[in-house]
Write a protein that binds this DNA or RNA. Structure first.
Lengths: 240, 240
DNA sequence: TTGACATGGCGTACAGCGTACACCTACGAT
DNA sequence: ATCGTAGGTGTACGCTGTACGCCATGTCAA
């Protein structure tokens, strides 16, 4: 259909379609950040009048829905095999990789009020992995809630660690002040660090933090499953 | 300072201050929703011109920071006592109560780019509870990451369950369609429900889902602590 | 008493946003 | 030859956050 250059000079560009709009939106958000993404800028990027976009998406919310779908579609299908725990683990880490390519994605995902179908497909498939592993529907229900956003491969790092000022004197002063008011934060932030003042929050590997938490959860789920957990049974709370 | 009515009729209202601005903003957000909260509406609510607000907050972001501070200040101080797990549990559930009074709070908290000091106070104090319980700084570091937004008493329910249409015929049709495309979702959503089609997502108690996940995590932390977990030690992953 | 100054509120104005609406143009089917 | 439709355009509206300059008032020094 679209030979990129036909014999004559090409006065009309190929017509837009929904897919091209969505992909351009993803690329533009990668470039300029999701908070700067506007219908006008996206239109400009596509060489088109702003209102032209509305022939392909109903409004900006639907555009964002579509962007989420594009990304979620990149997540790998589940590994086959009997080990549900490892299969789930790998799938979630694969979802994480997809999201890491688009740092704005978590915020957009969280802002959706209706899950796009592709998103439900993913959740449905993940649930299927637990059920295939033998977990009861009941336990799986709780498990999915417990995973929360972690099933997408991200946790909201509720407050990003502020980066210290460039000036060394100023930095030392702020460090001293912080150590006085927030001694415990400073204590755990500088674990294993050689240079206290400059490495606050540095020695922190997002990937291993994520895996640590994921494994605590998965191990907990497995334990409950093996112990024959049933809903409403008293004494479940203290699993030890 | 502000006798509420002085002798004469009061032609001038008491001057604004930062605190009154913040409290009015919280109340207004409770009323009309955070996405409808604008500087203009807030000013109107306070009987004042929009630009008057800027004498008390630098900009809207700082207003939102302040609103978060107001809420976090409501969280109960920690219970004393040697049982760190229960103390943490109760504190987090208390934070949850504070947030539940303001349903917009989680989204605002997550959107902050710099943590207000009150927020750091809370985190510092929570960390102190783990350290007082004997957990190493290293383990506590991971633990805080693993808690993520749950330390504030909320989990992002990434996609809210859509409510079914009112028309019963339509509802049945959508249910049949969903059961076909997303069988596993339907399976776990209808656990323990008597009327499948109408009760999807109904039999789901947010509070107990939250506690389930929190307990899986806390139990996991306790187990690692008792097993003498140390960072970087291979074999930690499979805690079983 | 007088002037200086700080505090707090006001009015205007601007750029940017999402998008409703009417219009036009080109193309495929009849 | 005509018509319907898909896709792109131009204009316009109401809303947003907020920069800037002005003005009224209260406090304090001289």
């Amino acid at each position: 259909m679209s030979r990129s250059e036909n014999g004559a000079a090409v006065p009309r560009r190929a017509p837009l379609n929904r897919e091209r709009v969505l992909r351009a939106a993803v690329a533009l958000a990668d470039d300029i950040g999701i908070e700067s993404l506007s219908m006008r800028k996206l239109a400009q990027e596509l060489g088109v009048a702003p209102m032209a976009l509305y022939k392909h998406v109903a409004n900006k919310e639907e555009l964002l829905d579509g962007m989420v779908s594009v990304i979620v579609a990149e997540v790998d299908p589940p590994l086959p095999g009997p080990d549900w725990k490892n299969a789930v683990r790998h799938r979630i880490l694969s979802a994480r990789q997809a999201l890491l390519r688009h740092s704005w994605a978590p915020r957009v995902i969280e802002s959706r009020t209706q899950a796009p179908p592709v998103v439900l497909d993913y959740m449905n498939s993940l649930i299927g992995m637990f059920l295939a592993g033998g977990l009861s529907a009941d336990l799986t229900h709780h498990v999915m809630h417990a995973l929360g956003s972690r099933m997408w491969g991200f946790t909201q790092e509720v407050f990003p660690t502020p980066q210290p000022p460039a000036d060394p004197g100023m930095r030392a002063a702020m460090f001293r002040q912080a150590a006085e008011r927030f001694p415990h934060i400073v204590a755990i932030a500088t674990v294993g660090a050689h240079d206290d003042a400059s490495s606050v929050g540095q020695g922190c590997d997002d990937q291993s933090e994520f895996e640590f938490a994921l494994d605590v959860l998965l191990d907990g789920f497995e334990r409950l499953h093996n112990e024959g957990w049933r809903s409403g049974v008293p004494g479940n709370r203290a699993a030890g």
